[in-house]
Design a protein around this nucleic acid. Structure first.
Lengths: 111, 111
DNA sequence: CCAGAGTACCACCGTGCAGTTGTACATAGG
DNA sequence: CCTATGTACAACTGCACGGTGGTACTCTGG
């Protein structure tokens, strides 16, 4: 599926994508959106951060096409538009768990 | 598999992991290692970067447990230790292609 | 028309990181 | 030994980014 020598441009696109998701606040925003559509106010309170910060990160996720925005009155409702990002986090956690199991096997092999 | 409210610490770990992979040079290093074990010198020439830069990024990937190092004489041989990173890139590309197809469907729906 | 709520944008600051330069270390060859 | 080769580490610089404060804009309710 991937071309054998990945061109520099594609490497930069992939890297940019990974860096967009690679932020604790944005990961927590996406996590909060797993339950469904949420307003900025709700997300701000759930994360315990400032409204400006939440809006800023949601704007970045929106521009990247990872979330979608729906305006109703004065409130904006955000939702996950790209389900693959959650699978990405799952995969990361899976790799981490595999590494931890290897380490524990080395530390305590006979036990 | 993932806990429902992702704890802040886990979000930071996932984010750090994504940021480590989210660099064009490191993605190209991992891509070059898809063909098998390679020396620093070989990777330096293949990427067209400096030896110091390649060594620096390889050190980061090594510390993260993504690649492995084997020293023989004066040369260091690096190899991919965590195959899931390649699947990660594949997934990113898949999501990008899906988004592109959606866009092209909007731009030229009858053609 | 006015006040308040909800949201987004802008400027700023501090931090972290990518790339470069210089250099130290280890090993093989003569 | 002495030199060359291959690699890793430290310091520096420029730049991008995360968080914050301030503010403008929009819509709703009175």
């Amino acid at each position: 599926m991937l071309p054998q020598p990945i061109p520099v441009e594609l490497a930069e696109i992939i890297a940019q994508r990974l860096r967009i998701i690679g932020d604790p606040t944005r990961i927590r925003l996406l996590d909060a959106l797993r339950s469904g559509e949420r307003s900025v106010n709700h997300l701000t309170e759930q994360l315990g951060t400032s409204q400006q910060n939440a809006s800023k990160h949601l704007g970045m996720l929106l521009q990247a096409g990872i979330v979608s925005r729906r305006k109703q009155g004065t409130t904006s409702w955000y939702a996950i538009a790209d389900d693959s990002v959650l699978a990405l986090c799952e995969q990361i956690c899976g790799a981490l768990q595999a590494q931890l199991e290897e380490l524990s096997a080395i530390v305590g092999p006979t036990r």
